[in-house]
Design a protein around this nucleic acid. Structure first.
Lengths: 209, 209
DNA sequence: ACCTGAACACCGTTCAAGT
DNA sequence: ACCTGAACACCGTTCAAGT
């Protein structure tokens, strides 16, 4: 936590800036992650941030990379590619949910091709264990990335909408219903199941040829 | 095209506003679709837009609805649910690509649950023909929505990145290669194939029970 | 190596009032 | 029914200069 030194102002490293950005993201959310607010948090003028990053998008790309890096890596190779893929998908899904608005941040930089490249790389590696050809593997990984990020994004928005409407919607159907917490993870698993089953069907079809 | 009348200023309907927004979106893109720019296009002050819409997000939701409505409806029931699902998925995919940044607009309002509800409804209807239970149907539809929107978003961003880098990246691998136009649609079809095959496997598993 | 200070060119939104 | 005008509270980014 650099406060100020002999130069008379705070001196932050690139990592300090990313750390502060992640804190704002998690505690306030993406709308409050402005360059001006971030600079204030660090005790510097907004323009100081442009020494560390050329623009806001590259900052968000770095933030995305850190969010994805938070996904625990696959343990040992279980020998079953389907289990490997499910484990990796769940880990990446959890990483997106670990920070408020995490999925939205990753989604935006992913589309621009600026960050979160590990997302697809890790899924490709897990799928590749199944012995599919290169094109099928990278395509299936891409499909899975869209589902995982889209699902997490959608879910985080619902959480926010629910909390905003908590006062107005006092009589929501889901109110205090613990089953809500169980329905969502199952929805994720079923989506993954669909994709893994589709891949499995592809491999059987190829084996029959 | 209402220019100005006895009142001395342009009088626009809600639909006029949406039309103008779609024109800006298609010709300039989402970053230029600002309330101020839109108002200027219509010949009114920015504040006039707030008589038609409570805020920008609800305007974008209305724009999303129109983009989705542009997808041609399914023709006759072919009797084969797999063909029905593929046809509907392709129609919705094409609708997203019909407007510049169309996928991004739909993606943002979809996550907020404000617009584009027809996307999931139409896919659910097509999948439902296969005779799956309600939960599987809506879940598969949601998975498909994430893939379709994510794929289209990703693709549109690549188009823009390529055109921006057209001068700097004079020696891109894809330069003037017509095969690029063929690879993308096939990638979409393969993703859909994976999901349909996954659903088919589910139905076979259920039949064996 | 990292920051200041001042400026530029913008945003979305509100609200009383006008026709 | 639809718009004006003025204001509020913001944005991201640039650049010469400072330590």
């Amino acid at each position: 936590m650099p406060r100020s030194d002999s130069a008379g102002y705070a001196r932050n490293s690139r990592d300090d800036v990313i750390d502060a950005a992640l804190r704002i993201l998690d505690q306030q959310g993406l709308p409050d992650l402005t360059m001006r607010h971030l600079a204030a948090t660090l005790g510097v003028a907004p323009s100081a941030l442009y020494w560390h990053f050329p623009n806001k998008q590259s900052l968000l790309a770095a933030v995305s990379d850190r969010i994805i890096a938070g996904a625990r890596p696959l343990a040992a190779d279980s020998g079953d590619w389907q289990i490997g893929v499910r484990t990796e998908a769940a880990a990446l899904h959890d990483a997106l949910l670990a920070y408020k608005d995490g999925a939205e941040v990753v989604s935006s930089t992913l589309a621009l091709g600026l960050g979160a490249g590990d997302l697809q790389r890790r899924l490709s590696a897990a799928i590749g264990v199944g012995g599919f050809d290169k094109q099928t593997t990278s395509l299936a990984a891409e499909t899975m990335v869209h589902f995982i990020v889209g699902h997490a994004f959608h879910r985080q928005q619902r959480i926010q909408a629910d909390s905003l409407g908590a006062v107005a919607q006092e009589h929501s159907l889901d109110r205090e219903d613990p089953a809500v917490d169980h329905r969502e993870p199952r929805a994720f698993e079923l989506g993954i199941t669909l994709l893994v089953a589709g891949l499995d069907a592809q491999s059987r079809a190829a084996a029959d040829r």
